[in-house]
Structure formats: C-alpha cells, structure tokens
Write a protein that binds this DNA or RNA. Sequence first.
DNA 1: GATTGACCTTCCTATCGTGGTAAGCTTTAA
DNA 2: TTAAAGCTTACCACGATAGGAAGGTCAATC
Lengths: 133, 133
Amino acid sequence: MDKLVTIGKASSSSGVSAKMIRYYEEVGVLKKASRTDAGYRLYNQAQLQQLGFIRRARNLGFSMTEIQSLLKFWLDTDRESRNVKQLALSHLQEINEKILELEQMREVLQTLADKCDGNDNPDCPILEGLAQT
Amino acid sequence: MDKLVTIGKASSSSGVSAKMIRYYEEVGVLKKASRTDAGYRLYNQAQLQQLGFIRRARNLGFSMTEIQSLLKFWLDTDRESRNVKQLALSHLQEINEKILELEQMREVLQTLADKCDGNDNPDCPILEGLAQT
DNA sequence: GATTGACCTTCCTATCGTGGTAAGCTTTAA
DNA sequence: TTAAAGCTTACCACGATAGGAAGGTCAATC
C-alpha cells in the first residue's frame, strides 16, 4: 500500500516545489530519499505527510531550524508537549514583535502621508520627515 | 564650512555602518564619493544628510530601490509631491499586507498553542494541527 | 527501432541587506 | 620609529527561494 512517487508527484501532492524538497534533504531537514536504479528520488506516504507538515509550518512563519525541531518532535513518540509549546510560544513572540515593528512603521508613515497633499507641488512632508533637518 | 570627513566619521555621525555606505555607493543609491590622494572616501555635509535620510527610510521599511527613488525626489526641486505620496502609499499597503499575514499566523498559532497542555505528556494539538491528517 | 517530450539529475547563479574577515596601505599619536 | 587605528578591496556567509544549463531516463508515439 505504500505507493512510491518521484519528486514531481511529491511536489504537486504536497505543495512544496521539487527544488525545495531537494534543498530540505540537502540541509538535513528531511532524511535522504531512497532512489531508483536511475537515481530518481522516491517518496512514500509518510514522507509526503512530512512535506505537508513542513509546508504548513512554513505558512505559519517557522524557520527551517524550528521546523527541523518540530519534525523531530512529531516523529518522537516520547516527546513532551512542553517543548513543542515552548517553541510555538517563542515563535509567537517573534511574530508579535514583528507586528509591533510594522505597526510603528505604519503609524509614522501614515502620519507623514496624511500631511502630504500629493499634487504637482514639490512641497512634501514625507521627504521633510525623512530629511529631519 | 563644508567640512569633509572619512567614512568612519560619516558612519558614526549618520548611524549607517561603513560597510553599508560602501554598499550603497556600489549599487548606485549614493553617488561615488570623492577620494583623498590615498584613496580614502570623503563626505561633505550634504552627503551626511543623505545618509541620515537613508537610515530613516530603512527604519520605515522602504527597500533600497524605493529609497533610491525617494532620494531622487528629495534632490529634485522639480518633483511633484504626488509621486512621493504614491510611493509612500504603495509601501504602506505592503506594510498592511504583511501585518495581516502575521496576524493570521498569530491567530492560528495562538489557537493551537492554547489547546496544548505543555506538560510532559506527548499529546500535542500543535503537532496535530501541523500534521493535519 | 527511433524519436520526442516530459521528467529527473547535479551544479552554478541570483536574490536582499547585512556582517565578517583577510591582506595590505595610510594616517595619527606616543 | 613604531604601534594603533583607520582605510582600501576582495572575498565568504546568511535564509529560503528561484532560475537555468547540461545531461541522463522513461514512456508514448511514429
């Protein structure tokens, strides 16, 4: 039942590009795939699930290093959920910091933009704000 | 009055690293600096102001390409504020999109994390969410 | 049996903004 | 005079991704 597929099928069914699948193998996030006699990589169902896992973790903004840990936890039945949660919370904090940073940028920039007439006149509070004389 | 300084002073007084100052020159964001006989770069007051301008624009998240445009506008007394404002609003939109993306990540991840006990038990809704069986 | 086209392989390049390092020259201060 | 600090260019690295070139493999069609 463990149907094997080459990298193209693995890519289309997981939503991860073939390029990236090879890259994940190269950097050690994925174990080396088995090969056909001709050297084609082969993936089984469990490996396809791992690719989906990686894609979803990427979509949540986890770095490859974090994903490597998450995958290890996932495959380890002796994991402690404490460690997974800690990783998630640490990433959540990063996300929150980025949001705050972007919101501050937005506020400053919006304030400047609001003051700019945006016509054919050269006077521009945006440039003045950046020049900050 | 137009005191000239070498790159170290230019860096410390503008808050832009010497490395970056050279890089901006290399990619054409800054005009090539004049040089001493020995080949040391020299910066005048106007150029120091430009460095500050760049630093503040970077702090607002503008890309180097956008900053190149902003600098051009700033130095062009025939500019129309319309174009500056358009650039700023376009960047604002990007910022807003990034914020939305991060907020979506946060919501999903926070929901998963809330469901995870975070103890020595292996059961973990975070991993289950990523596995999405 | 031969050709074709889709698929696979490895290897190299680029992105973007920043940091680091090494080898060597110049300036300044002791 | 010598040592330290500062400058120069020319490399390499990051993280995650994409593109391309050159070549091997597979399956279907002529």
